[in-house]
Design a binder for these strands. Sequence first.
DNA 1: GATCCACAGGAAATAGTGGCTT
DNA 2: AAGCCACTATTTCCTGTGGATC
Length: 410
Amino acid sequence: MPLFDRDTTIFRDEDVLREDYQPDSIQERDEELDAYKTALQPVVNGAQPRNVFLYGKTGVGKTVATRFLLDHLRRDVEEYDDVDLSIVWLNCNNLTSSYQVAANLVNELRPANEQISTTGYPQQKIFDMLYDELERLGGTVLIVLDEIDHIGDDDDLLYELPRARANGYLSAGKPGIIGISNDFSFRSGLSPKVKDALCEEEIHFSPYVASELESILDQRAAKALHDDVLADGVLPLCAALAAQDTGSARQALDLLYKAGDLARSQDVAEVTEKHVRDAQRALERGRIKQGMVELTQHGHLSLVAVLSLALEEETPARVREIYPRYRSAAEYVGTNPLVRRRMHDHLSDLAMQGILHRNTRNEGRAGGKYYVYDLDVAVEMVMDVVDDLETVDLPPTVVRQAEQTDLTAH
DNA sequence: GATCCACAGGAAATAGTGGCTT
DNA sequence: AAGCCACTATTTCCTGTGGATC
C-alpha cells in the first residue's frame, strides 16, 4: 500500500479556493466594476490615464477586480496599434515611505542585473531614476500600488508622479496610478494637494454581506468540490461567520477550504457544520501562532516573561512585575535587556495581536493607574511555540514550573 | 471638588546598519 | 576614507490621565 494516495473524495480542484486563483468572472461587484471600467476607458483611447483609488477592507475584491480588469484591458488594447500599455504591479506591504516605493518601482522596471539598493541615494535621485525608466518604457504605464496605505502620510511620490508630465519630466511616458488601500482613513491623511491630483476616481468596495458571500462560495464550491459533499448549511455558515467577522471573501473561502481539509483528514465523505466551526478555530489559532513566531527576539522574551508568571498563576500582572522576569529571561539567553519603556511597547504589540490580554486598573490616589497583562491564549500553545524558537531559551525555572503545572494538571 | 499616585505613552535624541558619492 | 542619505530600533525625558482618597 502506498504511503501517499490520491484522495478524491472531497476536492475536485482545491486550487480554486486558494488566494491566487483568478476566477473568470467577478461576483456581486457589478457597480464597482462598471465604475472601474469607466475610469480605465481613457487608456483604450490612448489618452493620459486617470488616477484611480480603490478603498475597502481586505478580501472584498479590490485586488481580484483589478487583476481581472487589467487582464482584459491588456488583451483588448492589443487591437490598437497606437496604444502601448505597460502595467507595473507593486505591493507596498512593509514599504513605509515614498522613497522605498519609488526605489522598488525602479527595481520592478529594471532588469534583474541592474537593481538598485533601497537606501543610500538622495530622494530626488530615486525619483529621477524612476522617471528615466518610465520614459524609456514609453506609452501608457499603469502603476498599481497595492496596500498603498502602508506608506502612511509620506506622500511625496503620490504628489510627484501624477504631475511628472506637467512638470516636463516625462514626454513619452504616460503614467497612471491605481492605488489600492485597505484603510479609508488613509485618504484623510493625505495632504490636500495630493488629494486633488490623485483621487480623480474613487471606488469603494464595501464588505460583503452574508448573502453575497454565499453566492461567491456557491460558484467556487461547484468547481472546487465534488458534488454532494457539503452538508446542508455549510456554505451559509461559512458565509455567516465570515460576514460577521470581516466581510471578506478570502476568509469565507479559507474557512471552506479548511473545513474540507479537516473532513478529508478524517476520511469522511461529507463536510459538516462542525467541520466549519473547527476550521474557524484552527484558522484563528494558526493566525495567532504565526504572529507569535514572527515576533522579534525581545517580543519573544517579553512573552516568556508573561508566560513564566502565568505558570505560577501570578497573572494578570502589571509591568512592574513582568519587567524583572523579562530581564532575567534576557540575561539567560545572553542578550542585553531593553529599558522598561521599550519592553512595554513590546507588550502593547503582543496585546494588539491578541496574544496578550490587557486591562486598565486604577487604584486612584492610593495606587495610581496602570495596566495588567495576561495571556490571551492557552499556556500550552505558548509553550509549544516558544519551545521551537531559536532566539529564545526558556530559563530552567520556567521549565521546572511548566513541568510542575503539567503534573498537577494530569 | 481638589489632590495625587503610578504609570502610559508622546516626542525628541541617540545608536547602529547598510549603502552611495566624491 | 570621510561625509552623506535613509531607515530601524532604542533610550531618555517628560507631560497627561482617571479615579479613589482627602
